[in-house]
Design a protein around this nucleic acid. Structure first.
Lengths: 197, 197, 197, 197
DNA sequence: CACTAAACGAGACGGTACGTCTCGTCTTGTG
DNA sequence: CACAAGACGAGACGTACCGTCTCGTTTAGTG
């Protein structure tokens, strides 16, 4: 006999918790986002939260997976490789202004403070996003040069492409401007064409 | 008459607190670095800490100022501009492995979680470091090309130089490798020479 | 539907707190009886104490109610009215030497220092004890004289009976001796018989 | 050589401290009367207070000595012994309503909580006041009966005289009314005349 | 249609750290 | 050298959440 008796996990509870966490993060910041607060706001018992999530970081990771995958996905070709690349970069930059982007920012920030949280984030969302980024960039380069770059080269191109943007946002705390995004994109394509970096 | 009567702020207390905070951050992480713990470790009363610092972040900012300025300074020319630039980048990358670098990492992480902390960090240490970086890079470019870059160009070059490194460390959580640092440095000098980006 | 869901107040916690408070008062005195100390000694969290009591005085009032009612009760007739009256007085005098008597002494003392505490003590324990005293004395007088005294007379008799005892203990800080207790008792019965004061 | 060099204890400081303590006790109660508060209100440094007094109780004892001696003194005969006795009792009852009476009440209350404070109070003010009371009562009895009472008798008479009053004020927290004071006084004189109690 | 059995709300509990308050001591410069 | 000013170590205050643990109630299958 396989199936259990009794009630199943309530999907409405799950969504209420994720939404409450998202809302609190935007309204109260990371420190103000407490399990106690999420429970109250979601109309849920603390025990119910602890039944399904290990910590508030775990909740936010869940919320992020729900929201960020699509927002940071590489889209189908819609113009020249250069245009598509710049468009993607701008989408990423814009993402950091949205609520879901705030969640990512908070998780990246918390990852600097907590090795376990860092491991979870990197083993899950960041690893997948890194794969999506490399795959997306590989497609752009292929369309631009007609051939696939080597893996090591691709990795370095991705760092050059995404590094300045993240540096502006995470370290300098400023929105990335068009100039720096355009430069990054142009450079990456130029280097890819040279087959040199 | 200018000078106050009564005892003055004790410098030994100040140093004991900064050291205790540094030590605890490395040993226990950011969450484990509590005011209570710092006070105990430093052999100091909590009230004394609250008299001089607003929060543990404030303490860490103070500790950072004490330790990081020199470590992240641009040195006098010692080789070709390219050599000096790569050397500097490696020094920055190495800094993140040191205790003081852990403090910076923690503060950058916490800045993603707390707007006030972000403002303090950016109004103080990061603004000064940004100035040092721009000034240092300006000197390198001048020696490399014989003339000063425009300010807007310089800013973009700095983002290209430092972005990939910080992206590797803060987002991907890996040490920056020689390949990516060399590429960043080489590219920046090439762009500076072209006077184009 | 009446009953709440969830866990109920733990009686064992309540008793542990009351006992810890009693013990600390005797061992450390009133100032040394801190909420922190009670919590530690009772093996209880501070928050648990604050959930059920407003202050340490509130705890001591609770402890007093638990212990003092019986000790200060008027007993069934066991001899002549005069004998019973003297016996009761000696029991009251002896009570001040016991731990529970120390609690009452402390609360009476603190009531001189804090109007709120005074109000709590008088609205609760002291009012009830006053009623018990008047009722007990009324019974003695009835047995002695064959009729009930007037209420105003009864009040004055109670003050004459209990005043010297409390004056010795609280003001002079000496144990009440047999002579003064006997005199008080004898006088009160004499006055009651005269139906005069 | 007797006299010291340098400044002497400042009498104005002494009075400022005593007044500040008195005022604070009336305005803020005993707990609100802190050394820190007294120092601020008196415009005096804490150290200066600790130089001359051991604690706030010590200050209040000092203030009491200044104010209460006269108020609780037995006056010269002005009428019949009975009249003088009742008058004195009313003066004592009234004293508890005055600021200086509040100080005595606070010190009596605190004496229930602190053995050291109790010892100081009883070794000083209370012992002297007890002597004044016995002496005063002895004079009244002598005038009333023509002879001196025995010492043991005198003590018991004093307890009967003052006990009900103090019981009303300190335990029941009510003002002593005329009826109880008159009864006490009348009884004491009657017993003295009988030469019996 | 009972009879399980788990999910859920509520919330008591032992803890830990928070930031504040006052204590009594010690230090420094002024009159 | 008394004094004002105030830094300092100490430690209790009352609060906020933590994560764990009962409780009764509700909701599905199972027999």
């Amino acid at each position: 006999m396989v199936s259990r008796t009794g009630p199943r996990r309530s999907e409405s509870v799950r969504l209420a918790v994720l939404n409450a966490a998202d809302d609190l993060l935007v309204e109260q910041g990371f420190a103000g986002t407490t399990i106690e607060g999420i429970a109250t706001r979601a109309g849920v018992a603390k025990q119910t939260i602890y039944r399904w999530w290990k910590s508030k970081v775990d909740i936010l990771l869940d919320a992020l997976a729900e929201d960020a995958r699509e927002a940071l996905a590489w889209r189908e070709p819609a113009g020249t490789p250069a245009e598509d690349l710049v468009t993607h970069l701008h989408r990423v930059a814009g993402f950091f202004e949205e609520p879901a982007g705030q969640v990512l920012r908070a998780l990246l920030g918390h990852a600097q403070l907590d090795k376990d949280a860092a491991a979870s984030l990197r083993a899950g969302f960041l690893r997948e996003q890194r794969e999506r980024d490399l795959e997306g960039l590989r497609g752009i380069v292929r369309r631009h040069t007609g051939s696939d770059p080597e893996e090591a080269t691709l990795v370095r191109l991705a760092d050059l492409l995404l590094g300045p943007l993240h540096y502006r946002v995470l370290v300098l705390g400023e929105q990335a401007d068009t100039a720096v995004l355009d430069t990054s994109a142009r450079l990456v394509l130029e280097l890819a064409a040279r087959q040199d970096p």
